[in-house]
Design a protein around this nucleic acid. Sequence first.
DNA 1: TTCTCTTTTGAGAATAGTTACTAATACGGA
DNA 2: TCCGTATTAGTAACTATTCTCAAAAGAGAA
Lengths: 124, 124
Amino acid sequence: MTQQRRVILEELQKLDSHPTADEVYERARRRLPRISLGTVYRNLEILSECGLIQKLELGGTQKRFDGRVENHCHVRCIRCGCISDVPMAPLTTIENRLRGTSDYEIIGSRLEFIGVCPQCKKEH
Amino acid sequence: MTQQRRVILEELQKLDSHPTADEVYERARRRLPRISLGTVYRNLEILSECGLIQKLELGGTQKRFDGRVENHCHVRCIRCGCISDVPMAPLTTIENRLRGTSDYEIIGSRLEFIGVCPQCKKEH
DNA sequence: TTCTCTTTTGAGAATAGTTACTAATACGGA
DNA sequence: TCCGTATTAGTAACTATTCTCAAAAGAGAA
């Protein structure tokens, strides 16, 4: 656990905004001005493999990262692209239903809602 | 509706394999050897705006395209990356439940299952 | 058909996000 | 402390996609 890795983890856990890799990079740079973007990518990958953070491969062009690891869903704003958590029971019911009818071995699911966030609704 | 656009649409509707843009390009090239990759991307974009095809922005690095436009979900194989359809009622119930509790204006949802396809299971 | 205007094309350059490479540095255990 | 491994910063390379632009193809009017 290097200094860089610790800072990346801490900054991510501090936020609930599901930042992209370069947003994490900007924040980490305030504390470690010489950190490189490659280090941020590498450590985000390692931390998500260890299960300390979550890598979100949802719609949009960039990956996002989440300091919360419990199973939960997200809403993406179609206008500004921001992402929020949705407090909701996991989809185990649906997954189990699928297990009965599909030839696939079902491991999990990924559910994302699309909408307009309160801020963008206001500005309409 | 140019020759190129028609061929791209036909090839996509012929398949149920949710091809990536370069897979569509390969197929279109068999019928129009001089077609360019840019043309394929441009037309896939236009066709999905018209609602003639569906653009899938699911997990993974590449976008995929679907000749079926009805609302349905997908399973992605975690090993080989292939994608299949899941016959399943749309998530309107869940979406409506969320409409009551979220500040977002909910427009839709995107549900993807993760699993292992029959082929990969066999090869284990 | 022919003329004109708009759209689309092919080819290649440009871009964005991410990953890989490498020499130098930091870390951790004996 | 020394030594071997892991990690770093910096940069180059890569991949998927989008953009640019001159040339070609359509589409509609005469």
